[in-house]
Amino acid sequence: MNNNLTHLHPYPFAKMATLLENSSPALDYTEIKLGIGEPKHAPPAFVLDVLQENLDTLARYPTTSGMFELRQTIAHWLEKRFFLQHVNPNSQVLPVMGSREAIFSFVQAVINHDGNNDEPTVVMPNPFYQIYEGAAILAEATPHFVPCTPANNFKGSYRSVPKEVWTRTQLLFVCNPNNPTGSVMTMDDWEYLIRLSDQHDFIIASDECYSELYFDEAPIGLLQACAALGRDNFKNCVVFHSLSKRS
């Protein structure tokens, strides 16, 4: 058993349930559900039809990389949405069952205890998606929190992170658009972080689960910023997307 499990915190909804367990709801008001990540609407009929037509495929285990047709569709969507020249569906796209599980596994794979870095660090915004912290702790890395405040437009002041922290950093998490603040990264923000990544050789993991929720102008994603800088190989950059939020 990983002893670092004792350092993990309960999820916010679990904390809320504990706080409210002895309270009585006000019967005059309608309950407002905050768990909006799970789609509640009826699935479109054509989706159910396709599922029924392909039930025979449930008789075998899926491959880790998934169907080529799915990866190709994802690659084409990324190219269209983020103005990319080419995304390789075989080497640059990997379907997952959920972004939380993918983020956790990614952190375990990325953090390296090779003896040259006795305190590998994961930089993340605060407030944050709790899996960032939990995955870092279980990988025996040190979380470094960048506060998102009104003074920095709720994006986090990455320019205020001390240089000695960046020298230990192996992974940087960015949430864009940010949850829960709603702030978005500009091209200048991305370029600054990409240059830092080049300088200190850390990976940027951009959590873009909310990329399709916006009022007018679509947020600039990490891959889009890379392409604008001529970095079509997306060196040290990985992006996580999710279907559940946009559904």
Rank of each mutant, 00 (worst) to 15 (best):
4 N>V: 02
11 Y>S: 10
22 N>S: 15
26 A>I: 14
27 L>Q: 14
32 I>A: 13
32 I>K: 12
36 I>N: 10
37 G>W: 12
40 K>W: 10
49 D>W: 11
58 L>E: 04
59 A>Y: 09
71 R>K: 14
78 L>T: 02
81 R>N: 03
94 L>P: 08
94 L>F: 09
95 P>N: 10
95 P>A: 08
96 V>N: 08
98 G>P: 05
100 R>Y: 15
102 A>D: 08
105 S>H: 10
107 V>W: 02
113 H>I: 00
114 D>I: 00
117 N>F: 00
118 D>V: 02
119 E>S: 02
122 V>Y: 05
122 V>D: 02
122 V>G: 00
122 V>W: 04
125 P>F: 11
125 P>S: 10
126 N>F: 15
130 Q>V: 13
131 I>G: 05
133 E>T: 08
133 E>N: 08
136 A>M: 01
137 I>V: 07
138 L>H: 00
141 A>C: 01
155 K>W: 12
156 G>H: 10
162 P>R: 00
162 P>H: 02
167 T>G: 01
167 T>H: 03
170 Q>I: 02
172 L>W: 09
178 N>A: 12
183 S>D: 10
184 V>E: 04
185 M>V: 10
189 D>I: 12
193 L>Y: 13
196 L>V: 09
201 D>Q: 06
201 D>E: 04
204 I>V: 15
207 D>F: 10
210 Y>W: 14
211 S>A: 08
212 E>P: 05
212 E>N: 04
214 Y>A: 02
215 F>M: 05
219 P>H: 04
221 G>D: 04
221 G>L: 04
223 L>N: 11
224 Q>T: 03
224 Q>P: 03
224 Q>K: 04
224 Q>C: 05
224 Q>M: 05
229 L>E: 11
233 N>S: 15
235 K>C: 12
239 V>A: 10
240 F>K: 02
245 K>S: 06
246 R>P: 06
